[in-house]
Design a protein around this nucleic acid. Sequence first.
DNA 1: GTATGCTTTCGGC
DNA 2: TTACGGCCGAAAGCATAC
Length: 377
Amino acid sequence: MASAESEVKKTQPRIVMLIDLDYFFAQCEELRNPMLKNKPVVVGVYSGRTEESGAVSTANYIARSYGVKSGLPLFLARKRLEGVESVFLPVDYEYYEKISSEIMQLLRSRADLFEQVGIDEAYLDVTAKVNGNYDTARDFAQRMKSEVTSQTRISFSVGIGPNKLVAKIACDVQKPDGLTVVKPAEVTSFLQQLPVDQLLGVGRKTAARMESLSVKTIGDLAKFDVQRLIGDFGKNLGIYFHNAANGVDDAPVQETGEAESISRIATLKVNTRDLALILDKSNQLAGEIYLELVERKLRVKQVGIIAVLTDLTVRSRSKTLDQPSKDPEDINRIVRELFEKFIATSDLDVRRIGVKVSGFVKEELSQKQLTSFFTNQ
DNA sequence: GTATGCTTTCGGC
DNA sequence: TTACGGCCGAAAGCATAC
């Protein structure tokens, strides 16, 4: 019975790398102006509400040593750096995007399989490239680090493991400019002592629930009864947590396509429930989205709004169009309907608003080609 | 019952 | 403990179709 029919499908051993560009936005700014390198650099999103309102996007490691980190309000970052010669800069996403795509192209060419995640991370399946050998993989990564960094002047950290999950956690061990290898035989002991919140999907809330079950480390979670996990967290999550804690992850490294949604969100000058004020801003946002739709030759099936209320809770509403459109008038009409309805039912004022579109249909296929297809019959 | 689609929230970066 | 950006995809919850 050792034949193919009775065999359970088994995945071959893989060697997966995660590459994480170090403190990326701030490093890009250092690249553009090397004078910044020896001082705290804070790249922030300025909301425009007041001079200093906004949040830190990325800070370099010098700034981090003063407790400045992602998500921190800018005025507090200023406070923590009071009396220190430091540099605050607004995000320049286009510039970072350009640098990122150069690097990603170099990385992609070195992998068997490649998957970019966000602007500053990528998974590389290099199993064949290194003949399934971890020592070769380490050399490969070392060479890639020196070559890519000398070409682009951007440093990055690497985690290597038998799957994406382990590679990701390995990468976090040493940063910046790190290289951490976790061989299959080391996975269990490597994960064991780490806190559960190192696992993707275990945030503050879930970590607290696990703590109440006396699960503090990934090791605790690994030996926790899987049926109880399923009982507490549901089938999907329960099985996922069980596998993850045991270092099991079959998700393949695969190219991601184009984004499946486009959204723009902005902070209002003042909190309000005044529809005119809201629509004025939402029209601007919809206009930006429209430009991108034209550029990418897309129509959309879903149009939605996002509202961040005074207490910072997020609400969203959306509607599916009768037929795909890119027309700004269609988008604006739906956005107005959704905001009218929303404002009528919400008791809190709105702090930030957003517009989102999804359900893309390629322009060529939606109208003209179909028409000519039929007229040519 | 399962599959599929739509809507909303969650949370990572 | 709070303060507070702008994205994105995944997941969850629900309704409807088959």
